[in-house]
C-alpha cells in the first residue's frame, strides 16, 4: 500500500518508458516509444485504431514482453517483470476488452482485486474468507454505483456495468499509478461525468497518477493535463491538450479537419 509513495522523495518520474518496441510479424505495433509520467500527473494517450496504444500498455505492464526498451516504475526497473509483480508495486489497470470474472458476484470480483495484496499466501489460506476486505469492497461498489447489483454474477451485468466493475477492481488495492484502457467506452454520459469526477478526486486527494487511453476527445481534453499522440507505433505529439489539438500532424492523422 505504501509502495506508491516511496519513490516520491527521490524525484524520479513515477513511470519512465525508454525506447520500447514491439513487433508482431511485419507490423511494428510500438516503435521506439519513450516518455516519462510525473507523480500526480494525468496523461492522456490518444491515436487512431491500431496505433499501438493497448500494446504499449501491455508492454509496460508485463502482459507481453517488449522486443526492446526499458520500463521503470518509481525508479525501479520493471522490464520483463510479470504482471502480478507490477500489481504488487502499486500499478493498477483496466483492459480494453471486458475483463471481469463472469462467474463471480460483483462483490467477489472486487474483493478478489484486493486480496492478493493482503498478507502472505498461507495467511490467506487460514485467514478470513473475505480477507477482511468486504467493507472496503462495498465502499468501492457504492462509489461506482453498483450497490444494487452487488450480489449478481458479473457475467449477467450490462456492458457498461461490467466496465465499471473493471474500473472498481483497478482501484481496490489502492494503486499509486493506474493505466486505464478506454474507460469511457459504453459508459453513459451521466456516469461518464461522474467517472471523470472520481478520477480527478483520486488524483487530488491521494495523488494517484493516471495514464488514460481514450477516443472520447472531450473526456480526454478536459481530464488530462497532458496528452500524448501515437500513430503507427510512434509518438507524434506530446504536450498540453490545447497544443496537441492544434498540432498539424495530429489533426491530419487523427483528429481530422
Amino acid at each position: 500500500m505504501s509502495l506508491s509513495t516511496t519513490g516520491a522523495a527521490a524525484g524520479a518520474p513515477h513511470l519512465s518508458v525508454r525506447g520500447v518496441t514491439k513487433r508482431f510479424g511485419n507490423i511494428v505495433a510500438v516503435d521506439d516509444v519513450s516518455f516519462d509520467v510525473k507523480r500526480g500527473e494525468i496523461l492522456g494517450l490518444i491515436g487512431p485504431n491500431g496505433s499501438g496504444k493497448s500494446t504499449l500498455f501491455n508492454c509496460i505492464l508485463g502482459q507481453i514482453a517488449p522486443d526492446a526498451g526499458a520500463v521503470e516504475v518509481d525508479g525501479k526497473a520493471v522490464t520483463g517483470r510479470r504482471a502480478c509483480d507490477l500489481a504488487k508495486l502499486g500499478v493498477g489497470r483496466t483492459f480494453q476488452q471486458l475483463a471481469v470474472f463472469p462467474g463471480l458476484t460483483v462483490h467477489d470480483n472486487v474483493v478478489f482485486a484486493g486480496q492478493e495484496h493482503e498478507g502472505t499466501l498461507l495467511g490467506r489460506l487460514f485467514g478470513k474468507p473475505d480477507a477482511g476486505l468486504s467493507e472496503e469492497a462495498d465502499r468501492l461498489i457504492e462509489f461506482f454505483r453498483l450497490s444494487h447489483v452487488r450480489d449478481r454474477l458479473a457475467g449477467d451485468l450490462s456492458y457498461g456495468q461490467r466496465k465499471l466493475v473493471d474500473a472498481a477492481m483497478a482501484f481496490m488495492s489502492g494503486p499509486g499509478l493506474v493505466l486505464l484502457d478506454e474507460p469511457a467506452g459504453g459508459v453513459n454520459l451521466t456516469m461518464l461525468a461522474e467517472l471523470k469526477e472520481r478520477l480527478v478526486a483520486y488524483n487530488r486527494e491521494r495523488g494517484t497518477t493516471f495514464v488514460v487511453i481514450e477516443h472520447n476527445m472531450d473526456f480526454v481534453m478536459s481530464l488530462c493535463g497532458r496528452v500524448m499522440v501515437l500513430a503507427e507505433g510512434r509518438v507524434i505529439a506530446d504536450g498540453p491538450p490545447e497544443a496537441v489539438r492544434a498540432d498539424k500532424r495530429v489533426v491530419d492523422s487523427y483528429l481530422g479537419g
Binding site: 502482459q63 500489481a87 470474472f101 463472469p102 462467474g103 478478489f112 486480496q115 492478493e116 489460506l125 474468507p129
Partner: peptide, 21 residues
C-alpha cells in the same frame, strides 16, 4: 478461503487475475 476465490479467478480470466496481483 481467498484461495478458493483465486482458483475461480484463474478459471474465469487468467490475464485479469494476473494483472490484479
Amino acid at each position: 478461503s481467498p484461495w478458493g476465490r483465486a482458483f475461480k479467478a484463474l478459471r474465469e480470466n487468467e490475464v485479469r487475475a494476473e494483472s490484479l496481483g
